[in-house]
Design a protein around this nucleic acid. Structure first.
Length: 270
DNA sequence: AAATTCTCCTGAAGGC
DNA sequence: TGCCTTCAGGAGAATT
């Protein structure tokens, strides 16, 4: 399930293959994604050059001179660099055919999206309301402290809210809270500035470490070259219900929060 | 305004 | 072997 490290891993993987390449044509086999892929998109992107590949939160931005393709991998999406004779899987929904290579989107659950804008992507309705990048200086203890005051929602749901900070999904939220020693159920507004500092540091540490490992592969995620990411081997609590806490040995507990599985240690996280 | 619930979708896993 | 149920979840939309 692609979170920020997986999207960044993908961005770094595909960039050298597609930067400065011209899209010969775009093939759409399945339009029904999170939102329908615009019928006229192939015509808009064909014969245009990809100038750069950027990331904003979990969105990938393919910048052409004629506009920007906005890609989201949802929770089962992946992008691969293929050759013209690579067999097409039934969930391979979109091809961007380049000179001798194909950028291919696979997304079994179709929660992803392929959109288009001719304006500044930062002004797009999906991008504009997003909070700061977690690895940027704008996301710091003061920011988190200020934005959690008077919040009665759990700290976990707040750090997973993309309008507060982007890119922190379920896996990394659980891991960050464990590292910071904070109970996922704690009301966000009850965190001290010092604990905001710890949590911000933990989020940056976890995301950074995962990017270095090529992301986390649990089920669907693969890199652009078909390889998995290796951060799953470094997870402390996610998916570890019943296993001993690495710090105190108590069994890791699992419960449902905002319709998501949360994993934590009842002793180490207060 | 903020918090919560609903929704899209398919594959994996478990029960019988 | 096969059919059914349950679970997984990103995040906008709808609802409270």
């Amino acid at each position: 399930m692609p979170e920020l490290p997986e999207v960044e891993t993908t961005r770094r993987g595909i960039a050298p293959h597609i930067n400065n390449q011209t899209i010969e044509k775009m093939v759409v086999r399945q339009h029904a994604m999170r939102w329908p892929i615009p019928k006229n998109l192939p015509a808009k992107v064909s014969k245009h050059k990809i100038n750069s590949v950027d990331r904003r939160g979990k969105y990938l931005l393919l910048r052409l001179d004629s506009g920007t393709i906005i890609l989201h991998l949802g929770m089962s999406g992946s992008l691969r660099i293929c050759s013209p004779d690579t067999p097409v899987d039934k969930h391979d929904h979109v091809d961007f055919v380049l000179n001798g290579k194909i950028l291919r989107l696979r997304d079994p659950r179709r929660f992803g999206a392929v959109l288009w804008t001719t304006r500044d992507p930062e002004k797009h309705k999906l991008i504009a309301p997003l909070g700061p990048e977690p690895l940027s200086g704008a996301f710091n203890a003061d920011y988190l402290f200020e934005h959690t005051r008077k919040r009665t929602a759990s700290i976990k749901s707040v750090i997973m809210n993309s309008h507060i900070v982007v890119g922190v999904g379920n896996i990394y939220a659980c891991e960050s809270l464990y590292i910071a020693g904070i109970n996922p159920k704690r009301k966000a507004g009850s965190l001290s500035l010092a604990r905001c500092e710890k949590l911000v540091a933990a989020i940056k540490q976890v995301l950074d470490a995962s990017i270095k490992q090529g992301g986390t592969t649990l089920r669907d995620f693969i890199r652009e070259d078909g390889q998995p990411g290796y951060f799953a081997q470094q997870l402390f609590v996610y998916g570890k219900a019943g296993e001993p806490c690495p710090r105190c040995g108590r069994p890791i507990k699992q419960f449902t929060q905002q319709q998501r599985s949360t994993f934590y240690c009842t002793r180490c996280q207060k």
